[in-house]
Nucleic acid binder design. Sequence first.
DNA 1: AAGTGGTCTAGACCACGAG
DNA 2: TCGTGGTCTAGACCACTTC
Lengths: 259, 259
Amino acid sequence: MLDLGVIDRTDDRPPYRQIAAQLRRHISAGTLAPGEKLPSESELIEHFGVARMTVRQALQELRGEGLVVAEHGKGVFVRSAPPVRRLASDRFARAHRQDGKAAFLVEAEATGRKATVDQISVSTEAAPAEVAERLHLEEGARVVVRSRRYLSAGVPVEIATSYIPESIAAGTAITSTDSGPGGIYARIEEQGHELAHFTEEVTARMPTPEERKALQIGAGVPVMTLIRTAYDTDETPVEVCDTVKVSHAYVLEYDVPAR
Amino acid sequence: MLDLGVIDRTDDRPPYRQIAAQLRRHISAGTLAPGEKLPSESELIEHFGVARMTVRQALQELRGEGLVVAEHGKGVFVRSAPPVRRLASDRFARAHRQDGKAAFLVEAEATGRKATVDQISVSTEAAPAEVAERLHLEEGARVVVRSRRYLSAGVPVEIATSYIPESIAAGTAITSTDSGPGGIYARIEEQGHELAHFTEEVTARMPTPEERKALQIGAGVPVMTLIRTAYDTDETPVEVCDTVKVSHAYVLEYDVPAR
DNA sequence: AAGTGGTCTAGACCACGAG
DNA sequence: TCGTGGTCTAGACCACTTC
């Protein structure tokens, strides 16, 4: 059994922090291995002789640090580190596209992990202000909106939403859930918009509750947002893609010339 | 007064989420401006007719998102965002360096905010494994280590640590706290290493307690780490710079060719 | 059915900040 | 002193998972 110690009422730290510290100690020491189940709330209540809320506060602190995840009806488990995906800056090379591969699958190939996509939805909507600005459209102009979730080895790692001007997407497979070989970039080029370059805007923040749910992460795990704008050879923006990535699942790599 | 609505018992979401959503709505709409005080727990209890724990759970959700900060004895306040710094990928252009400007000051100039540097320290140490690998050095080789903290308009926004091989830095201003006009990159080029390009590796995580202190941020605010490696025209790595940035203070911009 | 975590109530005492 | 948030108790009912 785990050595959890006892509450020291003379300790400066409140009981819930002491309980959290005991559990944290076992996690960092490996006595509680990734994927392993923590003692249940009832067991902790009995062991420490405290009220349920006190135990829950301790567990919540650990959830906030991203150390554990609670599964309703099953228990609280030590978080297992998700796969790290390195995204190099050549991930949109045309060569890959001509092979019939979408960008995410190209990235996945390098890691050797099985990549899947689900929760695909496609609709036509009015462009949000931030999107309209990047696409050089009037606010409220119609855009095709494609949302999907990416998983690596079954673990959700990213949610993404693409916005394509209706003038480009109309009548193509872009408006279908299956965008065809090479993904939507191949379709955009078929419409006569040869892709020249992308800009990416990267920042990080805490996830909203909806994002936490979709990415299956606890509170306390940050996300990176990457807004990519694709330009054709006329410098016309042809797509905006807003992605939310589980931060510790990704390392973004960029190459910057010194000029 | 704020329009907070009422709890809808037929709503799928539990009351605490509905309360959080109401408050979040006012924050994102600006009705609750940065720095402004939220209604007190007592006021929320009375308004919504719920128990205190329910209100606290709602507030805790917002704290977890980094939207608000609680100050004991004073109240709960909308987090005031530090100035956002957009880092464009031309920020290391040689033209700026020849003007005698260091990179951080170039970035700062665009925002019009007053940039300062403090907590500068310089030492010579054995290279940590991750640094040695990037510099193509034996582990334990000697490197000059330069640490400093950057502030924008007096607010700490970034801490950075540079590692330069001793073979390049020895006998130059790189080993002084004042690295001279154009910063250390100018000194490195004077040593015959013309800079060709940089790689940047970006990820995000929660800060350590030390980082929280140095950056003056509360729990619940993530940081971005950016590890930059500088290469000369011979593809020899000449510097590794490890930076930790307050995430919502920065947007990193990159330009990626479609090839 | 039994065990788990999720949510909620209605109190209590404490520590901090401002007047 | 008073209002604020921080911590805690001792219950309750619910939803989910496993058997």
